[in-house]
């Protein structure tokens, strides 16, 4: 077991072979120079890392429920504030929340908004695997347009999820948070830089991190890095930051690969390659291009 990497999250967790989020968690927490306390929403990370009697967490950790990780850390952070004032707690501590996209875009959306609005000093990290994966791949508002899930299956009448992914980054930024960034597990240097920035920024900060799911996106267990890379290389998942409302794109290319390169690597998009659904791929390409142009236009 790698001692350096397992200072916060040890081995022995039961995430699927080839899962991406352990790397996300370890990379982000590795950037903190001070001790951390974690709150975590119900989800894959939580259930695979705290299966009694074993907890893979070597740092203080609380799982409360599915929709309240941000509210829970709000309580922890305020407790810290007063106990430090009273001299009962001496050390400086950082507060980090981890949640999946379901726990962030949907059921945890309200408690996230409350915590951001109240200005608690914490970092909220959403590992975005595009659906409710722990419960067996049901659709969330983060599921991409056209993706098949167990609740948006493709069929005679449907080509998968009909709605467009909720733009959570803009919603987070709209709270006036000092720092929000979209990152990708395949781009570790970029993720590290953003994690350090988020951890060092006073007040609520937000990281949305691309986290491929081998089991439910249906790709071989060895592929999460390659597929995550393609997501950014095709502009499907741009890397950018919003600092005090100012947008900055961290990775761009003159000639992005066609989104098809990304889609064809995953079983959840396989149905789009039928004659009937081919036009949907064109639609997705247009949406990806339009979104990137929109982002680029927001950069001063």
């Amino acid at each position: 077991m790698n001692k350096e990497l397992t200072k916060n999250l040890a081995s022995g967790h039961s995430a699927c072979a080839g899962c991406a989020f352990p790397t996300i968690v370890r990379t982000i927490l590795g950037e903190s120079d001070v001790p951390v306390v974690i709150s975590n929403a119900t989800g894959c990370l939580e259930v695979t890392s705290t299966l009694y009697p074993y907890t893979a967490w070597k740092v203080p950790y609380i799982h409360n429920a599915f929709e309240n990780a941000a509210a829970t850390i709000s309580g922890v952070e305020r407790a810290y504030k007063i106990l430090k004032k009273k001299g009962k707690i001496k050390k400086e501590i950082k507060f980090v929340t981890f949640a999946g996209d379901g726990g962030t875009y949907d059921i945890g959306f309200q408690s996230l908004s409350g915590a951001l609005e109240r200005g608690h000093n914490f970092l909220y990290v959403c590992y975005d695997n595009g659906g409710y994966m722990n419960t067996g791949n049901q659709r969330s508002s983060a599921t991409p347009f056209g993706a098949a899930t167990e609740t948006t299956p493709s069929g005679k009448m449907s080509f998968g999820k009909m709605e467009v992914r909720k733009n959570l980054m803009d919603i987070a930024a709209a709270h006036g948070v000092p720092y929000a960034a979209q990152a990708n597990v395949a781009y570790l240097p970029d993720l590290k830089k953003k994690a350090r920035k988020a951890l060092e920024t006073e007040g609520p900060t937000f990281l949305l991190v691309f986290s491929p799911c081998t089991n439910n996106w249906k790709f071989p267990t060895s592929q999460f890095v390659s597929i995550a890379k393609l997501a950014t290389e095709t502009n499907f998942w741009p890397l950018y930051e919003i600092e005090k409302g100012k947008y900055k794109i961290n990775w761009a290319t003159e000639k992005p690969k066609p989104v098809e390169e990304f889609l064809k690597t995953q079983g959840r998009f396989k149905h789009l390659f039928s004659e009937k659904n081919k036009p949907v791929i064109g639609q997705i390409q247009k949406m990806v291009d339009a979104e990137f142009r929109r982002l680029a236009s927001l950069v001063e």
Binding site: M1, N2, K3, L5, T6, L9, A10, S11, H13, A15, A17, G18, C19, A20, P22, T23, R26, T27, L188, V225
Partner: peptide, 11 residues
């Protein structure tokens, strides 16, 4: 390979 290993099993 080290940071990408989901189990942090590589040193």
């Amino acid at each position: 390979c080290v940071p990408f290993c989901p189990e942090a099993a590589i040193e």
